[in-house]
Design a binder for these strands. Structure first.
Lengths: 334, 334
DNA sequence: TACACTGTCGTGAGCGTTCACGTAAGAGGA
DNA sequence: TCCTCTTACGTGAACGCTCACGACAGTGTA
């Protein structure tokens, strides 16, 4: 079993002290250009790589940020992770992932587990916990960035793509193209806390359309969830001619249910998704959706968490990101 | 800034030594039931959580395994990760993810970065590196489990779902239903190392069908990759009536290209996917595919890596997992 | 009584870094 | 010459655990 080379090995070989090697590899001041070069050369030759564990122990930061994610198989969340990972990797940061399956208990537990992992900060990407739950709990002063939720609390900062406004636009668009009865297929959980539902209600009310519990269907945020919700919708004869869904997966599931019942999309029923996942432009019919710039979301989140780590006392304002309506076949009126 | 409670805090409060607390929380021997209970009570009250960093420093293991993944937005890889995460979480193991975008240089770099992270073992889930590349490199004696590749080397063990055999079955099935000219849409990279291609060739040759470079198309393992490959296929008038694809994403992309050209699937051209992602049963037409039991793959990989960590000298045999043909509309002959 | 053994607990060292110092040599000014 | 300041290093401690011991009481055996 070959021993790992340590900073002491390098120091001995280079004929300097441990601390000088540290200064060299961390680009600190108080070292001459000559010695730095000599040390870096030696580092390269010996294949020395500093241990993250020891660095975390001794230093104040671990250069690791935790990411709590609802479900990594969700294409949008996966894409945000991928982008976040890309940025983090570029600055030698580490991402420690926690997959919670949207279970609120597990999400809370994950926060503590990440803290025991000594992460510098936590990014929260899951719609499960309510804003007040997030604001309430003790996170040991570690900065938290919450994506897609407005949370106002110390050490917590938000990055939101305004789903309420986006959904309002969607519903208004559907109304504008002549739809009078619009159904809502959304995620499980309290509706008060559901930005999708809120946007829907705002649009429906402002246009004076009828709102009925018979138009709202909740299920899991998956293909199957959308499929089941749509089946349920079809059991009610409520005259729905268009639906807005919580995300594209639910929309695609719903479209399958409609197809199986011989209902053509968009002629019999129009379907509007959310997230604009890659499948949305490959389905039949192609799916209208809301485009989220996941790279931008990730970039903002990464910058924000870094800022918060560097300046723990500063309170940062909520960042709001643009979204775009992408119109495709599933809502085209012939 | 509230200080974290350490093992010493707990020891002082419980009136025992540090080591006794360690014995209690790690379920070690040499401690009476009474003291253990008293300590655990105190641990709970004080909300003590051992630091993974310190454990890693002091102990021989970090309880962390690295996972090198080609692309987390790929549904199958995401699902395998999710399952691996589930098993790992259950045994208080940590997964450290590396997303490589199939770039071979990044994959090699990731191995070293994971080693500097002091992981106990590495699981490799990406088709990019060849078996010999994997077998060759120095991993500092850390055990490696490679999924979907046969590698025979010390400290490296394989879990494969036999893609060669599965693809052979697919092509034989297509031939059995009357297809004479079968196209192949597969990933980029050398074909020698491509198990999909090998299975295809075995079937085609054994049945005495024509094999031509005009029947093989390579592109990225994505929806777009499949779409582009299919477009290319359509430029050649090669009489293809069925294709087998490297995965479902490519199949779905290809189906879109066929649809755009007015070719109906399966009547004009049959399409067979691979992986059986959730969306395969929601597309129009639904997609025939190969089902991989990703939970089983993850379970095997996790057990294997644990075995290898525990018994570094033992050489484990390759594990081969079953696969199933799932027949759906995209290959139904009317 | 003397001895070995077993169960329960404590002690010191060490993991590989960074941090807050201390120190020595040389430059510059009065 | 003496003092101060700056540059370029080195030194000990600390981070929070585990590991390999050592110690001490109680029990059994000759």
């Amino acid at each position: 079993m070959r021993k790992k080379t340590t900073i002491d090995d390098v120091a001995r070989e280079a004929g300097v002290s441990r601390q000088t090697v540290s200064r060299a590899i961390n680009g600190m001041e108080g070292i001459s250009a000559g010695t730095r070069e000599r040390i870096m050369e030696m580092v390269h030759v010996m294949g020395y790589q500093p241990s993250r564990l020891a660095r975390g122990m001794a230093g104040s930061q671990t250069k690791t940020i935790g990411l709590i994610i609802g479900n990594i198989t969700n294409p949008t969340q996966a894409e945000i992770f991928q982008n976040l990972y890309k940025f983090a990797e570029g600055e030698n940061y580490n991402i420690m992932l926690r997959n919670t399956n949207y279970e609120s208990e597990l999400e809370l537990k994950s926060v503590y587990s990440l803290i025991s992992e000594n992460v510098d900060g936590i990014v929260f990407l899951s719609p499960t916990l309510t804003s007040s739950q997030l604001a309430d709990f003790e996170q040991g002063d570690r900065p938290i960035v919450v994506i897609n939720r407005s949370v106002s609390a110390k050490h917590i900062s938000s990055i939101v793509s305004d789903m309420t406004r986006a959904t309002k636009s969607v519903v208004e668009y559907l109304i504008g193209t002549g739809h009078q009865t619009i159904g809502l297929i959304t995620r499980l959980g309290s509706l008060d806390n559901n930005r999708h539902f809120c946007g829907y209600m705002q649009a429906v009310k402002s246009r004076g359309l009828s709102t009925s519990p018979d138009l709202v269907f909740q299920n899991e945020i998956t293909l199957l969830g959308g499929y089941l919700a749509a089946q349920q919708l079809l059991t009610k004869s409520n005259g729905v001619t268009a639906i807005t869904t919580y995300n594209d997966l639910m929309a695609l599931g719903a479209m399958k249910a409609f197809e199986e019942r011989g209902l053509s999309v968009p002629d019999s029923i129009a379907v509007f998704g959310y997230d604009d996942i890659p499948y949305a432009s490959y389905s039949t019919p192609t799916l209208s959706s809301i485009r989220i710039n996941s790279e931008k979301v990730a970039l903002y989140a990464f910058h924000r968490i870094k800022e918060m780590i560097a300046q723990p006392e500063v309170i940062f304002p909520e960042a709001v990101l643009d979204i775009d309506l992408v119109l495709r076949e599933s809502t085209m009126r012939s």
